[in-house]
């Protein structure tokens, strides 16, 4: 007869585990990966593989030799970081080695330096991305244009994203948003939604992002609060600007469909570790991200501001957790 076990109550568990949550996020990223491979072919596959591989390796090495703790690479969190990092870079051939450096920074500095999963104050994938953006500004803002399905090489034409083109175009004397769009033959809203624009791996198709996000919502990995408040506040703020001056500001629908807002709102800002916990704090967090994104896009020097916006809001997460307590049952 084995010994009876003793512990405090409860004696049953919901079967929920960190591992399950992380692998669900990975599942949700699959549609985006498929779209990326469809549009960018081998490069997309290689970049994702390198990014995930380096993330796993860095985590394993640090845990084995520096922290001397049992390895946790099976929990899927390094895969999430690797995939998200890959989704944040353009699918050019040279990104394959650049993303390896980014992955090293993301895992090494962004996550493991703080003690591993759960302890990092900033989203590690964004730390990696911002590091690459600052270190390799040209490579990080040169996108291959989308051409035929599953191209094997992408050395043909390269250019900027719609956001970049508009931002650049507006600096010319007398240019308006409409004239820039017309001159450069930018894709229509519908094309952007389905996935026909230059951009990072994961930004191509808003539809694929939505499919992933709905899966996460259904499996209760994320709640609606951050994505909705992020996208909503960006939409409202951009809409106000557009109403004030439609010549200088992009219309709100294009705003939320282009660039990384969808990806950021559904997958980056909702990262459990770096986002606040109570619902009210999550709403504030999302709104902050949305507002900062639009501010950086319109008045900053970068055409895209999602990464910076989320990182900035990550830094106030502990404060939001402190201020926005859940409603107590018993006053």
């Amino acid at each position: 007869m084995k010994l009876l076990k003793v512990s405090g109550s409860p004696h049953v568990h919901s079967d929920e585990s960190t591992k399950k949550i992380m692998w669900r996020v990975n599942m949700a990223l699959v549609p985006m990966l498929l779209v990326a491979i469809a549009f960018y072919g081998l490069n997309a596959l290689l970049i994702s593989a390198v990014s995930v591989g380096v993330c796993l390796l860095v985590q394993w090495l640090i845990e084995k030799f520096m922290l001397k703790t049992p390895t946790t690479i099976c929990d899927g969190s390094a895969v999430v970081t690797g995939l998200l990092l890959a989704f944040n870079v353009p699918a050019t051939a040279e990104m394959i080695w650049i993303v390896a450096i980014g992955a090293l920074v993301a895992m090494g500095i962004g996550k493991m330096a703080f003690g591993g999963l759960g302890k990092n104050p900033f989203n590690p994938a964004l730390v990696g991305r911002v590091f690459m953006l600052i270190s390799f500004p040209v490579q990080m803002t040169t996108w291959p244009t989308v051409g035929k399905w599953f191209p094997m090489s992408l050395d043909t034409v390269s250019g900027a994203t719609p956001l970049g083109i508009i931002k650049e175009g507006l600096t010319h004397e007398g240019a308006t948003v409409q004239s820039v769009i017309a001159e450069n033959g930018l894709p229509s809203l519908w094309e952007i939604f389905l996935g026909h624009m230059g951009g990072s791996l994961g930004e191509i198709s808003a539809l694929a992002i939505l499919i992933g996000a709905i899966y996460l919502l259904c499996t209760k990995v994320i709640s609606w609060h951050i994505p909705v408040s992020f996208i909503g506040s960006a939409f409202v703020f951009a809409g106000i600007l557009w109403l004030v001056n439609p010549d200088q500001y992009i219309d709100p629908l294009t705003t939320i469909l282009t660039g990384g807002i969808m990806l950021g709102a559904c997958f980056m800002a909702t990262d459990m570790v770096t986002s606040p916990m109570s619902k009210s704090a999550q709403l504030i967090f999302g709104c902050g991200c949305g507002l900062l994104t639009i501010i950086i896009r319109n008045w900053g020097s970068y055409p895209e501001g999602v990464s910076f916006a989320i990182l900035l809001m990550n830094s106030v997460t502990p404060l939001l957790n402190r201020w926005c307590k859940p409603a107590r049952f018993a006053k």
């Binding site: 003793v6 512990s7 405090g8």
Partner: peptide
Amino acid sequence: KNSYDGLQDCAFANSL
């Protein structure tokens, strides 16, 4: 005579 599987703290186990 049994195996303890709870919080690794004497004060807690003692209360249990």
